[in-house]
Amino acid sequence: MSAQDAKERAHDARVYQVGLVLALVLSAVPFGAVALGLLPASGLLWMIAICAIVQILVHFRCFLHIDLSSNHRHDLQLILFSVCIVILMAGGTLWVIGNQRAMMM
C-alpha cells in the first residue's frame, strides 16, 4: 500500500470510528435519561427528538457518506426530495387523522 493510500485509509477508518462513538453517545444519552428519569416528560421528548435527528445526520455523514460535495449532488437531491415527500405524507397523515380524532372527541 502506498503512503497515499495508507493516509486515506487512516482517514476513512477515523470517519467510521468517529461515527460509532457519536452514535453510541447519542443513543446512550436518551436511553440513560429515560431510564433514570432525569428530566420532566416534555424535556425528555425534546431531548429524544434532538438526539435522534442528530444521530441520523451522523449516520448519513459517517456511514452512508453523503456530504455536500458536488459528485454526490444526485444522491443528495434525491434524499432531500424524499425527505420533503415523507414530511408531506407522514406529517399529513398525522395531521389529518389527528384532526379527525379531535373533531370526534
Binding site: L88, G92, W95, V96, N99, Q100, A102, M103
Partner: peptide, 18 residues
C-alpha cells in the same frame, strides 16, 4: 399531486379548514 389526497374524502369528518 402529493398535497391533495384529502379531496377524495372531504366528507370524512375533518374540520372545515383542513
Amino acid at each position: 399531486s402529493f398535497t391533495v389526497w384529502l379531496h377524495h374524502f372531504f366528507t370524512m369528518g375533518q374540520d372545515a379548514n383542513v
